[in-house]
């Protein structure tokens, strides 16, 4: 009975920890743990002098021998307990919340009333959310754009200098890539060769599809202009309709990614290289900072800044919201496309 229970528990633990039978090319060959630096006899009662050890030493010896198992079983037990407790405490809290969709919820307070009733007049934006995030809370959105840009820069640093060998660490800076790709190739080859065995299993099946696929190219040639137009429309109409810089930028980057998949990265390189990415993103962030900085510096109430809010519902309305949306859209489109390009090719 007890053996059955322990084997059941072991099976469950293997299932949780993913130790079960796995496919061959998962990339994690099972390997024996490294041998201990010396062989340690398990502390048994038969050992001649075991009974002379103090309690503390016995405990230390026992931990040396069985501590790993103890830790893993404790970890699983405490982890399950923590998850169940987490869910039940929060469910008990949810049960005390006011009913879903009730207009009398405490979340629908005077802040919402202020935004809805005076937002249109004060910001000139028909879309209240756009007026909120790009006018009242514009510095917050600026911080978001900076976070996204910083993440893109970090990924660029982590993935584009992939070479671990010292020969390419001294290679020239990658920003001098004016002369085209020929100067760049040797630098990156050394980095990507280290990557190849990693990627081979998954990507070899994918590679030929990227090159010349008539169906993909046909569909892409039809849909890429539509996708890019839709992205521009969503960015530009951010203050009138659902959308804005973030969603429109994501649509634009989706169009670029589709183009890169159908026609290859070299085609996208002509319009969007790393140089373009750095220039457009940092330029857009700078423009955002200057515009919104002026607006806040001049009192943030649109009286002395000299920026007209326009008539609600017109395309040229909302004061700074339209240019700010365009800035955000540029940053988001460049960042998301560069994430894709860096993860799949190691370069923008």
């Amino acid at each position: 009975m007890i053996e059955k229970l322990t084997s059941l528990f072991k099976g469950f633990r293997d299932w949780v920890e993913g130790n079960g039978p796995r496919p061959e090319n998962e990339g994690m060959p099972p390997e024996a743990p490294p041998p201990l630096p010396f062989t340690l006899k398990p502390p048994t009662a038969h050992s001649a002098r075991f009974h002379e050890l103090t309690i503390r030493e016995r405990r230390r010896l026992w931990l040396e021998s069985y501590g790993g198992d103890l830790f893993s079983s404790l970890y699983v037990g405490i982890g399950i307990l923590a998850c169940v407790l987490f869910v039940f405490v929060l469910l008990a809290a949810v049960a005390e919340l006011p009913p879903f969709g009730d207009p009398g919820n405490p979340a629908n307070n005077e802040v919402v009333q202020r935004y809805v009733e005076r937002g249109g007049r004060e910001t000139g934006a028909q879309n209240i959310v756009a007026g909120m995030i790009l006018d009242y809370r514009a510095f917050d959105t600026f911080g978001e754009s900076v976070v996204l840009f910083t993440a893109a820069v970090c990924v660029l640093m982590l993935l584009s200098t992939v070479a671990d060998d010292s020969s390419s660490r001294t290679a020239p800076c990658r920003f001098v890539q004016n002369s085209g790709l020929t100067a760049l190739k040797p630098v990156q080859n050394s980095g990507l060769t280290a990557l190849k065995p990693v990627q081979n299993s998954g990507l070899t099946a994918l590679k030929p599809v990227q090159r010349d696929d008539a169906i993909l190219r046909g569909v892409a040639s039809l849909s890429i202009p539509i996708i890019l137009l839709l992205g521009c429309a969503v960015v530009v109409e951010g203050h009138l309709s659902p959308g804005g810089g973030f969603s429109g930028g994501a649509i634009l980057s989706a169009g670029l990614i589709l183009c890169a998949n159908a026609y290859g990265f070299d085609r996208v390189h002509r319009v969007f290289s790393e140089r373009t990415f750095v220039r457009s993103s940092s330029g857009a962030l700078l423009a955002y900072a200057v515009m919104k900085g002026w607006s806040f510096f001049s009192g943030a109430n649109h009286i002395e800044s000299g920026i007209p809010t326009g008539k609600v519902g017109n395309i040229l309305s909302g004061g700074l919201i339209l240019p700010l949306n365009i800035c955000v859209g540029l940053v988001v489109a460049g960042t998301l496309y560069s994430f894709y390009a860096l993860f799949s090719e190691g370069e923008i």
Partner: peptide
């Protein structure tokens, strides 16, 4: 421009922030 006609716009802004941070 009556608050009784629309849903709460504030969580939309918060979710937008959250999505951007989560993507990054």
């Amino acid at each position: 421009a009556h608050a009784g006609a629309y849903v709460n716009p504030i969580p939309a802004g918060l979710v937008l922030t959250g999505i951007v941070v989560s993507v990054s």
